[in-house]
Design a protein around this nucleic acid. Structure first.
Lengths: 227, 227
DNA sequence: AGCAAACGGACAGGACTTGTCCGCTTGGGT
DNA sequence: ACCCAAGCGGACAAGTCCTGTCCGTTTGCT
């Protein structure tokens, strides 16, 4: 996906080198790589709201070094997220080429859910928490997901009464992280959730879905009494 | 659930009256009620991280009035959450008395998902975001959910290979809010998610679930490559 | 009408945040 | 081995947002 020998830490969008295009000293390059690695982990564990000081601390460098190696906190986070989303887009394209429509759909669903589960920040980004910055990639993902679902429905392997617009909700749902549920994070929970969700999506007899199609309802507020 | 004639706004845990047990002036009582109402809405829309100034603004009063009517921000949020959780516990007990095991389970699942979907703050609280403050009520909920699931499995209406520990994950998943997904909030999305989840849980032939039982895995960290 | 109770909101003080700056350290060419 | 510029750490500036207090003004009730 990323050419070896890109910028310091193989992040195309991130200018880590100086004006001459090189990082002359080994420690500079090493720290740049540590910062990018730390940023990936921190985005996964803390989320897109992680602070520059926190990333620097995890990388084992001072804040001064952070801002010498990276143009800004925003640029670093952006580069990390862009990379992951590009990988995911590529995975979707590969799934679309799978001759088995169900296998392709399930493979992408698995990759998507795994990613959301692993990285709290990616889940936020996929949910639009980063505003317009990732809009292009997100709409590209939506487009591919629509094609994957429609193809599987035409092949008769996904129940036809589920509109493709429901699927991002279902996948996001299956990837709900243990951390957000008050239970200790057991690594493979998402696999169980996804399995049950996919069982619910598989073509077989089932009643019509309740409610209107998503994405068109007015902004009406509803309050239900739980009693 | 709450006796009429409790404290100012029917929140048992919250001392809104002065030492004599009365709020002498009508405006004081009116503002107390406005603050509690605003807190409920703000918790739903903003989450448990909502600020005192924000609640006061929504109630149309100054911060001074906020702190004169309410012992602290924490106490107000706690009272609001306690009330909702007590209602939910009562709903669970009612479901356990339903002679139809599936209907009882589905009714509670619906109430639970509806609540999480309606209120962002309740979803956070149910996920343990409030620490030990709600631990008693949360463990009570877990206990009732376990009994609901096991009863439905013994009656043969929920697939027996799904351990009850998976169900809170699945319900939390079904209630994933539209707001967190970058799509405009369409009120009834959760009904569609829940329907598909329940379809996945209904007893019928299905392969064994992958992975270990939740809640027992060690803290091992896993990194998967998405490519 | 009088006055205590209640009001609004400026303010204090603290916990964060991003990003800068400067005195000290060190990599690496000579 | 030496030298020095490049690189380093972390104190610091300036800002935002937080909870909670205080006081001059308004208002409900007797």
């Amino acid at each position: 996906m990323n050419q070896p020998g890109d910028t310091a830490a193989d992040l195309p969008g991130l200018l880590l080198a100086d004006a001459s295009g090189r990082l002359p000293r080994a420690d500079a390059r090493r720290n740049a790589e540590r910062l990018v690695s730390a940023a990936r982990v921190a985005v996964a564990e803390v989320g897109v709201g992680v602070s520059a000081h926190e990333i620097a601390r995890r990388a084992g460098v001072g804040v001064g070094t952070f801002y010498r190696r990276v143009p800004s906190l925003e640029a670093l986070l952006r580069a990390v997220l862009d990379e992951v989303l590009d990988d995911l887009l590529a995975a979707a394209d590969r799934s679309l080429e799978d001759p088995d429509a169900w296998a392709g759909f399930a493979a992408f669903a698995t990759a998507y859910v795994a990613l959301r589960t692993e990285s709290c920040g990616i889940a936020e980004a996929l949910g639009g928490a980063c505003g317009d910055a990732l809009a292009d990639r997100l709409s590209g993902l939506g487009d591919r997901l629509r094609r994957l679902v429609e193809r599987a429905q035409e092949a008769g392997v996904v129940r036809p009464d589920v509109p493709w617009q429901d699927v991002p909700f279902l996948l996001a749902a299956a990837s709900t992280n243990a951390r957000t549920l008050g239970l200790r994070p057991s690594d493979r929970q998402w696999e169980r959730n996804l399995r049950i969700t996919l069982d619910g999506l598989r073509a077989r007899q089932a009643g019509p879905l309740p409610g209107p199609l998503p994405g068109k309802a007015p902004e009406a507020e509803s309050r239900a009494t739980t009693g």
